[in-house]
Simulated assay, not measured.
Amino acid sequence: MIYEKSVIPIIESKYTLFTNTEKKIADYFLQCDTNMDINIQSVAEKLYVSQASISRFAKKCGFVGFREFIFAYLDSARVKKPNGNTTTQNVFNTYQDLLNKAYSLLDNDQVQRIVKMLVNSKKVIAVGKGSSGYAASEMESRFVRVGLDIDSLTDSDRIRMQSVFLKDGDTVIAFSISGKTEDVIFLLKHAHDRGKRTVFFTAADSPHLHEFCDEVVLVASLEYLENGNLISPQFPMLLVLDLIYSEYINIDSVYKSAILEDTVTTLNKKEDDRRFYLARPR
């Protein structure tokens, strides 16, 4: 599979930012038959909206104007796959769609900036609730094994209390698919106000998030996938975490590989000790 950038995930990630008119335009392009002749005049007439509204929509999607948007849109038109005949096919097709979306939203420069933050952090606090909490816990589990000082918090009270205990050199990494989890937003705002670095993983972009987040990492949304309910909600976040983890261990890879090997050896020794004590005669 060759991955290509697509405009579709960009439209989906910014959907909540659109006005009602812009959502009407977004819906059109999310469902549009790309074999049709698409120009700004025909779209305006078909949707009963002004050409200016369409231009504003294109700019809100991050393009200079409609011409640049439509070139990118047609170039990245989704390939329609036949519906799977089995549950297995549906799950695999949905994962493939999700991977394509994730690739389209990926910002390699942003990944490098986040890795630099982690390298320069004295301590990292990863937070999230529900399925997003699993992503926070997984981040701690993986990064702590290569020497990063990191804790994960998934309890509402502990997330809020952490705002009191932040120290110099701390970085807050937060996870929320909806982008609206109150306790998580609370910590991010307080961390930002106290001069700490903040990173937010979410599927819903919003201008106000950029006011208190140094990095807003857009992850693929399951909402628009035909069989998105078959996929674990935290998977899109874990996918981006894998990329960040890979880049992180590549920095001073010999040293980090040695730490990881020592960690695994220590854990294996713990298991050997447990078997030894269980096997002793009583």
Rank of each mutant, 00 (worst) to 15 (best):
E4Q: 15
K5F: 12
I8Y: 09
Y15Q: 04
Y15E: 00
T19K: 01
K23G: 07
D27L: 11
Y28S: 02
Q31I: 12
C32R: 09
C32P: 08
M36C: 03
I38S: 04
V43K: 04
S50C: 08
R56S: 11
K59L: 07
K59T: 15
K60F: 10
G62A: 07
R67Y: 13
E68Y: 05
F69D: 02
Y73M: 06
S76A: 02
A77N: 05
P82E: 11
N83Y: 15
G84E: 07
T86V: 13
T86D: 00
T87N: 07
Q89K: 14
N90P: 02
K101Y: 15
A102K: 01
Y103G: 03
Q112S: 11
V115F: 04
K122L: 02
K123S: 10
K129D: 03
G130D: 03
A136L: 08
S137T: 15
E140K: 14
S141N: 13
S141E: 09
V144C: 06
R145C: 10
R145T: 12
V146S: 03
L148F: 11
D155A: 08
M161C: 10
Q162S: 11
Q162F: 10
K167S: 08
K167A: 10
D168V: 12
G169M: 01
V172W: 06
A174H: 06
I177K: 13
V184P: 01
F186N: 10
H192N: 12
K196S: 05
T198N: 04
T198H: 00
F200C: 06
T202A: 03
A203W: 10
A204R: 15
L209Y: 05
E211G: 00
L222V: 05
Y224R: 15
L230R: 09
P233D: 02
Q234H: 13
P236E: 05
L238G: 06
L239M: 13
L241C: 01
D242W: 02
S246N: 13
I249T: 06
S253L: 11
V254Q: 11
L267E: 14
P281F: 13
